[in-house]
Every structure is written in C-alpha cells, then in structure tokens.
Amino acid sequence: MRNFTGLLVNEWLKLSKKRSFFVAYAILAVVFGILAYAFYELSPDGLNSTVDFATGTIMLQAAGQLVPVLAVLAAAGSVTQEHRYGTIKFLLIRAQSRNKILASKYIISVVYTLTLVLTAAVLAVVAGYIVYGGGAGESTWSDFLTNIASLAVYSIVFVTMTFMIGILTKSNGASIGVGIFSMMVGSLLVMLLSRYTITKYLLFSNTDLSVYNGEGPPIEGMTMAFSIVILLVYMALFLSVSFAVFKKRDIA
C-alpha cells in the first residue's frame, strides 16, 4: 500500500513539475475575471446575485466547458508522454504490476480533473461575490452544487475516454484531438439523431446530467438513473479496454 501511495505521488509530480502546470489554473482565473468584468459592465437581466452568477458561469454551456477541455489535455498525456519520452521502459521494469501503474495514472488524471472543477467553482463564487456582493436571485446554492457535480461527471467521462485513446494510439495529439472533437461533435450528433430512440444509448446523450435539473433530457423517456447506468457501462468498457491493452502491450 505504501508503494501505491508512492505511485500516486509520482504521477502527481509528473503533472505538477511541468512548467505548464499552472497555465490551466491561470486560464480559468483569467476567464472568470473577464466574465466578472463583463457582467459588471453590462449587468444583464435575470442575474442578480453571487449564486446566479456562479451557477450560470460554471455550466457546461458557459465557462464550465473549459474544465473538461483542460482535463482532457492532461489525461491525453498521462500514458502517451511516457512513450514519447521513452520513460515507459524505466517505468515498467520496476517491482510494480502494470495494473497498479495504470491505476495510479488514472486516479491522478481524475484527481487533477477534480482540482480543475474545484478551482472553477471557487473562482465562480469569488468572481460573483466581487460583482454582486451577495444579493438575492433565482438560483440557489443547491443549483450551483448540481451544476458542479454534472460538470465533474461530464469531465471525468471524457477524461476516461481520452485516457483509453491515449493507451490505444500512444499518440498525445491523436488522443487530444479525438477527446475534444467528440466533446464538440457529440452533442451535435445527439441533436441530429434525436428522433431515433436508440440514440439514448449513445454515450453523448448521457454525458450532461444537468439537463435533468433544467431543460429536460434530449430524448423523451430518459431519466437521471438511466443516464448514470449508461455512463457507468461506458466507463467500465473504457477502463477494461485500457487495462487489458496496457497489460498485454509489448514495449518495442
């Protein structure tokens, strides 16, 4: 167990020792700063409080979209960078099973994603407080927490998918490309195919859980529980493929 903690520390350091590590957090800070300034200048209708601001900006359709993008960038590199640097050879000749090594990589990718979600949440509240200083509006803290939770779920699903593509292709660029492309095109695809009921089994129809708290699901008859089950099935599939391929792979 002490060994596994060591693996987790290693993976975290591989991320955080990079000079670009703080860039992701800085981008979030800048974006929320700009949003705060814009809202202060324009004071749009319907937004009257800190909670309104925070709940609105952290949505996937707003600044929240940055979080899964930044998370995918990091997740794509987790395995592919080891191949690129050639360090995979040193990594896999230690007294550690490949399963444990891959598990540590996946866990840290998820932890990193959660730090991004948390940072975005804190920034949203702080920026909102600076502009509105509290105030009374429509949204409640519970709406805000729901949006954070669905942002986290959405990000983790795409991180898991990108993680698998990184293992399959060994290419950083390809996995970033596929990860971000499917984020963009996924919802479009669901719209186009929404008249077929089979579409509800598509991953992309289920990635945004916040719809159950607002506009309603893309296809009628879908429920939150249904979406969660579908997501779990896809995640299990992605992870089994990842672990199976990584364990068998010849490092040539």
């Binding site: 060591g6 290693n10 350091l13 020792k17 990079k18 640097y85 050879k89 040193f90 550690q96």
Partner: peptide, 29 residues
C-alpha cells in the same frame, strides 16, 4: 532483482536528476 538500461536512458526532461531518481525510489521498497 534487476536493474536495466534498454537502449538510451530516458528521463523526464523537465525534472531534475534528483527528482527523476526519486521517482524510482518511490517505486521500490
């Protein structure tokens, strides 16, 4: 029981030599 260098030794270029060795220290009891 094995130490190895398979072809060129490769390290995480953005870390110091010490940090790189620490990576492998943490992997072995």
């Amino acid at each position: 029981h094995v130490g190895g260098i398979i072809e060129n030794p490769e390290f995480y270029p953005y870390m110091t030599g010490y940090d790189n060795l620490m990576q492998y220290k943490r992997m072995t009891a």
